[in-house]
Write a protein that binds this DNA or RNA. Structure first.
Length: 428
RNA sequence: GGAGGGGUGACGGAGCGGCCGAACGUGCCGGUCUUGAAAACCGGAGACCUCGUAAGGGGUCCGCGAGUUCAAAUCUCGCCCCCUCCGCCA
């Protein structure tokens, strides 16, 4: 969410900078509500000041045993006017915050301008595609042939867009989770978190999934809880309505969680395989920093996600998303795309974003210096997060990039200790 | 699910319906003292909204929301959360 004063003073500039991203925002209603709120707030506050003085006067009269009927009657009238004003003010503020919560974040000045993914800018590449002697097979063919992936039975017990991993497949998934968590906690300095997988409406609003994107979420029927679409939600909201101590910053967390997404509107896309499921595993990186350090942190965090791919020996490229392809809350986003031989293209495996103060303002996450001096005013933190990495897609990349002509799949060196020494997945 | 207790500032912990943004203690910041530190003493320090170029002014906040009243941290009701005991349970 944007700061209301900034919004009031620079509404046109913000609308211009958002361009097409702000197309469905009701700017004029917003402008009107902001003005109405300001005017009404002033009036109500003046009345409350009158009431306070008047009530003190009543108290004085009663102490001095003087008649107070006139003053009491006058204050009763003032009280009624305040009640009316407050009711009106509440209505205005509800409409206002509903509108304001639907305005996307402003892109950072370094974000390339564009409308679609076509206009994303490649930042760098690492490694090279593997040299395969046979035409590459798709991961679902490889996995089903090896007996480690089962989509038919997943459909039987759940439905489309679910998968069952068995045997070495399940173990590989678990190995990837453990490898990534170990890397981030021991070498990159993140604190491991295991959060709830269901969160309330406030948490979803804090990170920006609500109110605008409710149709993307799974919601419980009898409770107002939502299944998390990413660990970003519970982990960022750990510090909702908190004032962090300056000495604690930057705060860095990593969390493994399953993620749940409706995938509404993606019918027909990636219907086969593990690429797009209603439930998938992910190791997430989350950071809280001071405002002047968040872009440095974004580079760091993206680098941490890249390290995972480098250790696994998987070829990838890093893309700076253009203004039109970025998510609602982000100010700048890098996508990391891994090479998939069967598709002959790069596919997103991580998305790392700086949200600046956008989520912090929604969630009330601030920081303050130690000194009780005037120079230690409270400020909103900047929040960041990125996948480090999406586990299922990493498994896809391993199956496809390490496939052998005989149908087996080599296991990257770094994972072998996590696989009980196994070097290759073969049909059992 | 049943019974009882409780939610106050960074923390602990007071608070006759008006003089309470809130005693007291700890912690924190600055100062005095000291070779330095500690102790002691003195002083300071919450968050948010709003008007104002500023200095400064006004308002809100004692879990959340309604209500009673001229006036609510204090009274009433609903909700949320925490604790103890019982039941159930991985």
């Amino acid at each position: 969410m944007h700061d209301l004063r900034t919004l009031r003073d620079h509404l046109d500039a913000i609308r211009d900078r958002l361009g097409p991203r702000g197309a469905d925002v009701q700017w004029e209603t917003l402008r009107k509500l902001i003005e109405e709120r300001r005017a009404l707030t002033g009036r109500v506050e003046q009345l409350r000041a009158d009431l306070k003085k008047g009530s003190d006067e009543v108290a004085r009269l009663k102490r001095e045993k003087q008649p107070a009927e006139t003053a009491v009657a006058a204050m009763k009238a003032v009280g009624e006017r305040i009640a009316e004003g407050e009711t009106a003010l509440r209505t205005i503020e509800e409409s206002l915050s509903d509108l304001a919560l639907r305005i996307p974040n402003l892109p950072h000045e370094t974000v390339p301008v564009g409308r679609t993914a076509e206009e994303n800018r490649e930042v760098r590449r690492w490694g090279a595609p593997p040299l395969l002697t046979a035409p590459p097979k798709a991961h679902w063919d490889i996995g089903e042939a090896l007996g480690i992936l089962d989509f038919d039975r997943a459909a039987k017990i759940a439905g489309a867009r679910f998968a069952v991993l068995t045997g070495a497949g399940a173990r590989l998934e678990r190995a990837l989770i453990n490898f990534m968590l170990d890397l981030h906690t021991t070498e990159h300095g993140y604190r491991e978190v295991m959060p709830p997988l269901m969160v309330n409406r406030l948490a979803m609003t804090g990170t920006g999934q609500l109110p605008k994107f409710e149709e993307d979420l799974f919601r419980l029927r009898d409770e107002d809880y939502f299944l998390i679409p990413t660990a970003e939600v519970p982990v960022t909201n750990l510090h909702r309505e908190e004032i962090l101590n300056e000495s604690a910053l930057p705060v860095r967390y990593t969390a493994y969680t399953p993620c749940f997404r409706r995938e509404a509107g993606s019918y027909g896309k990636d219907t086969r395989g593990l690429i797009r499921l209603h439930q998938f595993n992910k190791v997430e990186l989350v950071a809280f920093t001071k405002a002047d350090q968040s872009y440095e942190e974004l580079e760091r965090l993206t680098g941490h996600a890249e390290t995972v791919l480098q250790r696994l020996g998987l070829h990838y490229r890093v893309m700076a998303l253009c203004t039109g392809d970025m998510g609602f809350s982000a100010a700048k986003t890098y996508d990391i795309e891994v090479w998939l031989p069967s598709q002959n293209q790069y596919r997103e495996i991580s998305s790392c974003s700086n949200f600046e103060g956008f989520q912090a303002r929604r969630a009330g996450i601030r920081w303050k210096g130690a000194g009780g001096k005037k120079d230690s005013k409270t400020e909103f933190v900047h929040t960041l997060n990125g996948s480090g990495l999406a586990i299922g897609r990493t498994l896809v990349a391993i199956l496809e990039n390490y496939q052998q002509p005989d149908g087996s799949v080599l296991i990257p060196e770094i994972l072998r200790p996590y696989m009980g020494g196994m070097a290759r997945i073969e049909k059992e």
